[in-house]
Design a protein around this nucleic acid. Sequence first.
DNA 1: TGTATTTGTGCGTTATAGCATACATTGTTT
DNA 2: AAACAATGTATGCTATAACGCACAAATACA
Lengths: 183, 183
Amino acid sequence: MLKYEIGTQLKEIRHQAGWSLTRAAKETGVSKAMLGQIERNESSPTMSTLWKISTGFHKPLSLFVDNLLVGVDDDKVRSTHTTFTSHKQGLKAKILFPFDPRFGFEVFAIKLSPEQTHLSEAHDKGVFEHITVVSGQMEVCIKGRWKKLKAGDVLRFTADQSHGYRNMNKTIHAEFHNLIYYS
Amino acid sequence: MLKYEIGTQLKEIRHQAGWSLTRAAKETGVSKAMLGQIERNESSPTMSTLWKISTGFHKPLSLFVDNLLVGVDDDKVRSTHTTFTSHKQGLKAKILFPFDPRFGFEVFAIKLSPEQTHLSEAHDKGVFEHITVVSGQMEVCIKGRWKKLKAGDVLRFTADQSHGYRNMNKTIHAEFHNLIYYS
DNA sequence: TGTATTTGTGCGTTATAGCATACATTGTTT
DNA sequence: AAACAATGTATGCTATAACGCACAAATACA
C-alpha cells in the first residue's frame, strides 16, 4: 500500500541509463532483488538505500523525490457528501482533499448549525485560509472584526492569528469550504 | 551507520513547530518512539513514513531531503596519498572525494606509468571531466586529437564521447586529478 | 536449433524499521 | 515538598526492508 510511487521514477532512470538490474545493483550496492521490488512499488525504500541508489546513479536525491505527481490518480471519483467527520458541538467538518505534500494544501467542508460560533487558534506563519460559502450565510472574524458572507462569497486571510466562524441565523445551517494552504 | 542525517532536520522542524514527540506522533501517524530514533539518527525512515511525516507537518518532502549539507563533516582530514586503489595495467587510481549526491561530483587521482595509454568509454550526456595535471606531463584525447598538458595545466571537456589519457614520456610517471561532474 | 548468457522474478533468511507499552526525568501545581 | 502532568528514552515484539541464491524466460551466439 504505497502512496508514493518512487519505483516508476527509478525504473525510468535506470532504463534511461541503459542499465540492467544486475548492473544497477553493482553500481549502487543495493541488491538487484531489492531494486526490482522497489521498481514494482512492492517495497518502500529507506532513506539509506535511496541514498545509495542516487549515489550509484550519480544523480541528485531530489530527482527521485520530486516530480512525483505520477501517482496522483484522483481521476476516480470519491464520494464525500455522505460522510461528515469531526463532530464538534454545532460544527460538522469533512475532508474533501486531505493534505498532500506535493500540492501543499487541504480542503475541508464545514457545516455550521444555527446560532453557532467556532473559534480557532492561530496557525503557523505562511498559512492561508480560503473561505467559500456554499449555502446559507455566515461571518468570519479577523483581527476582531466580524465580516458577513453569503452563499457564493469568498474570502482569503492569513491564518497566523486567532480567528473565528459563526452562523447568526436562527433556523438555517451554513455550509462553506475551507482551503488551507501551507507555504 | 547513517550517511544521511535527516533526523537533525526533523528535530529542527518539530521544535520550530513547537510540537512535542507525542503531538508529532498524533499529527503524523508515526509512533513517537520511531520519531525519536529518527531524530537521534538511530533509524533511517522509509519513504513511506517520511511521506507521513511531511504530510503531518504540512510541509513538502523536499524540506526533509534538501538542505542536508549538515552532515558533511569532512572537516576531519582523510589521508589518501598512501592508498592507491583500482590498479589497471599501468594506471593507478584512488578516490579523493567519492560521489556525493549533494554536490554532484567525484574526484580521482590518477597515476599514469611511462608510455602508458588508457582509453575511456563515453559517459552519459551532461558529464564533464576536469583534468588537473599535478606532476609530469600527459596528453588527453578529445575528438581524435591529442592535447599536450604539463604540470599545472588544466582542461575541461564534455565526457559524452570516447576519450583517452596517455603518458608518452619514457621514464617519469604522470599524475593528474580528474573531477567528474554529473549534471 | 541447441547452447550459453543475460534478463528479471520468486523464495527463504537475516537485518532492521516500526509499534505499543512501560519507564525515568524534568517541570508545574497546590 | 508531595503530587501531578508532561517530556523524551528504553524495552520487547511484529512487520517488512534487504540480502543471497536459485529459477524461468528471453536473448545472443554458435
